[in-house]
Amino acid sequence: MSDEIEFNTAGVTKKFMYVNRKAPYGTIYALEVLEAVLISAAFEQHACIVFVDDGVYQIKKGQDTDAVNMKNFSKTYGIIAMEKEDADEDDDIDMVWRIIVEQESMEARGLRADDFVIDVEVIPSDKLAVIMSEQEIVISG
């Protein structure tokens, strides 16, 4: 949350992809990428948020972190879903957001599309590879 500064980023919209590959809580990767995604929203950039490998566990339903004394940040992904909705609905905002789960990673872990806390597009790896190749900036963790 920044108070004082307003940046003029009009006309500077790039295609960002965020590649999440680690399960939450064991390492800091997931949280770091999530923070970067939220910053991306503040600057109204295009964003593909992708969950691959163990990254799919970041958005698994039913997380309860009370006993491990950590913040349950699976709830924070709701902001991403909300940003996507805003971007989809508001014609004034030139911002395309996609939330993607790689089909192979999901199936390898016995998960299904309705196991996630947010709505996702489930896309097979060959198609996701093409989407990835079209990005301008990729941030991964």
Binding site: M1, S2, E6, L38, A41, F73, K75, G78
Partner: peptide, 27 residues
């Protein structure tokens, strides 16, 4: 409570705008 973090100022302002009208939805 819902998202486990504080909103960005931009989000806050947008929400206030929705609730209280355009004149109040500003920095």
């Amino acid at each position: 409570n819902e998202y486990q973090i504080a909103p960005a100022v931009r989000v806050l302002i947008k929400a206030v705008k929705k609730k209280l009208g355009a004149d109040k939805g500003s920095n």
